[in-house]
Design a protein around this nucleic acid. Structure first.
Length: 288
DNA sequence: CTGCAGGGGTAAA
DNA sequence: TTTACCCCTGCA
C-alpha cells in the first residue's frame, strides 16, 4: 500500500456526479470540496475534476494508473456508445445529454452480490449505511490523511458472522439471505471464478439466481455493474418500469405493465447496449 | 406529536 | 399472482 497520484487531461465522458450518483455504487461519498472519496478493491481513492482534468489520489495496493484504467474502464469508448444510442430516438438522446458523463464501473463481483442483496426493497442512504457498518465491522482498516477507511469484507471475513450479527448491522429481513449466500459461496455451491470466466450470460444469470436474496433485478444489476460486465442485460426496477411505460408503452396503470414486454422492447431498441441505455434513462428520470 | 404509507425486490404461500 | 418482510423518511 502506498500513496499515489494520477492525472488525466482532456478527458471525455467522465463526470463525477454522473458516475457516482447514478445508482451503480454505494461506497463513494461526495466531499465538501465536491470531490468524491471511495473504497474499492482494497484501495482508498479520492477523485476530483478541474475543468477537463481528472486527478486521482489514493492509498493503492498496486499501480494507481492500472487500477484507475481497470476500475473506470477507460478503454471503453463512451463517445461511440453515446453516438450510437443517440440515434435511437429523441428520448434516449435527451437522457444521454443529461447524463453525458456516466461510466459503468468495474466493481468487484463478490461485493456487488452482497451489496445488491442488501439493496432489495431498500433506499440508497440506508443501503450505504448497512454496507459501511458491515465493512467497519469485518473489513480491514486503512488509514489515509488521518481518516480511517474500511475495505469491503472478503467471503472468508464473513465466515463466522451470524444471522443475528447481520440483523444488528441494520440489514433487516435480508439477514438470513446474506448468511445463506455467504455460505453458498464459501461452500462453492456457486463458483465466482468460474462465473467470471463463463461467456454465456444466461448460464451465469441462472447461477446467480440460485443465491439466496438474488432475484431477476438483483441478478441483472450484478451482471451489469460488476466485473462480469454484461451490457445486454436490462435491470427492471420501479423507476425503469416507470420511464419505459411513460416513453413507449403508455399503459394507464403502470403497475400492470408486464416485465416481459419491457424486456422485449429493451432488446429490440437497445440490443447489446441495453444496460447502458438503462443507466442513462434511469438517471435522467430519477434526478429530473 | 402520532400514525401510516411506501420504498431501486425476493421468496413463500 | 399476492403478500409479508426491516427500518427510515415524508407527510397528513
Amino acid at each position: 500500500m502506498k500513496e499515489q497520484e494520477y492525472k488525466i487531461e482532456k478527458i471525455k465522458s467522465f463526470e463525477l456526479a454522473d458516475i457516482f450518483d447514478c445508482g451503480q455504487c454505494f461506497r463513494w461519498n461526495k466531499q465538501t470540496d465536491r470531490s468524491y472519496t471511495g473504497v474499492f478493491k482494497g484501495n482508498v481513492m479520492n477523485v476530483q475534476k478541474q475543468g477537463e482534468t481528472v486527478i486521482f489520489k489514493g492509498m493503492c495496493n498496486g499501480d494507481i494508473k492500472e487500477i484507475v484504467e481497470d476500475y473506470f474502464e477507460l478503454k471503453r469508448n463512451y463517445e461511440e456508445i453515446k453516438e450510437k444510442l443517440s440515434q435511437i430516438d429523441i428520448n434516449v438522446k435527451t437522457s444521454i445529454e443529461y447524463g453525458k458523463g456516466i461510466r459503468i464501473l468495474n466493481q468487484d463481483l463478490w461485493e456487488m452480490i452482497i451489496s445488491y442483496i442488501i439493496s432489495a426493497n431498500n433506499n440508497i442512504p440506508r443501503i450505504k449505511g448497512i454496507i459501511e457498518r458491515l465493512s467497519k465491522a469485518y473489513g480491514k482498516e486503512i488509514v489515509w490523511n488521518g481518516e480511517k477507511y474500511y475495505t469491503f469484507p472478503t467471503v472468508e471475513e464473513l465466515k463466522d458472522v451470524t444471522v443475528q450479527d447481520y440483523r444488528k448491522l441494520g440489514a433487516g429481513f435480508r439477514d438470513i439471505r446474506l448468511y445463506e449466500t455467504v455460505h453458498m459461496i464459501l461452500d462453492k455451491k456457486v463458483d465466482l471464478e468460474q462465473m467470471q470466466n463463463n461467456p454465456n450470460t444466461l448460464e451465469v444469470r441462472e447461477q446467480l439466481l440460485t443465491l439466496s436474496g438474488v432475484g431477476p433485478k438483483v441478478a441483472d444489476c450484478i451482471l451489469l455493474f460488476s466485473t462480469l460486465k454484461r451490457f445486454e442485460v436490462f435491470p427492471i426496477d420501479v423507476w425503469v418500469r416507470r420511464v419505459m411505460n411513460e416513453l413507449y408503452i403508455k399503459n394507464e396503470d403502470e403497475t400492470k405493465v408486464n416485465k416481459k414486454e419491457i424486456e422485449k422492447l429493451a432488446q429490440e431498441k437497445f440490443g447489446n447496449l441495453a444496460g447502458i441505455a438503462q443507466q442513462y434513462l434511469f438517471y435522467w428520470k430519477r434526478e429530473a
